[in-house]
Design a protein around this nucleic acid. Structure first.
Lengths: 117, 117
DNA sequence: TTGACCTATTGACCACTGTCAATATAAAAT
DNA sequence: ATTTTATATTGACAGTGGTCAATAGGTCAA
């Protein structure tokens, strides 16, 4: 029913969830790590709930390790969604993501970004 | 407390409102025009309500003409918001919008501070 | 002036959602 | 085995938000 673009918009439309997602950019954090990063704004069950939602929607990856669970952002999916939104509201334009101080790199909205490591 | 990025995410997180905004890309439509474009999915008061919200948030422009009100998308603001979102979730990258088949035009939305200016 | 038309407003309804305290579950440490 | 630690789940609550019917307020046409 709901496409990724709408799911992504819903995901980032809540301040707490948006902040969580940004903290999960490029790093793996445990649940309590995220709780700490939020500086007491919300409690652990709330963070856990948001992370479950994000996982269900495919916006984060999870890795269990002992009794902790580490989460990280699904960078590719998020980038594709960003591109879809840009394209939807800028007809006639193409979005490109250019690494700072590095040769050009292009993201075509309907295909996979070439974000190599 | 709520920045444009969050307001934009909220705006496009509802299917009806997102569709309205896309219909208002590059054209001026009356309220009833929008109602028609939505094909009976929602009634006129609902459309009117969404348009009021969008106007309050600055995402659409309005022009009164006789007994009708014409709305159009605030393309620049929407594009800036798209760029902010891309930047927020792609640290280390800059987003560029390139018109198809036309010389380069750039919208820089970097989270990195530029020393000058 | 009267009536038809366009849009905004009101009030109500209900589904959804973000949050928390309390508790459960599971794994590690003692 | 007991305790401590890390996370998930449950249940409840208040607030938000999308929707509509009914209506109000203008504006134009006859």
């Amino acid at each position: 029913m709901l496409n990724d673009q709408l799911l992504f918009a819903k995901a980032i439309s809540d301040p707490t969830r948006s902040e969580i997602m940004q903290h999960l950019c490029c790093v793996w954090l445990s649940v309590n790590d995220v709780v700490d990063k939020l500086g007491g704004k919300v409690k652990q069950p709330t963070v856990s709930h948001h992370l479950s939602e994000l996982e269900a929607a495919g916006f984060v990856f999870v890795r269990q390790e002992g009794r902790q669970r580490f989460y990280t952002l699904n960078q590719e999916k998020v980038t594709v969604c960003c591109g879809q939104i840009c394209a939807a509201f800028n007809p006639g334009y193409v979005m490109k993501l250019e690494p700072v101080d590095v040769p050009l790199q292009t993201i075509t909205v309907s295909s996979k970004p070439t974000a190599d490591e």
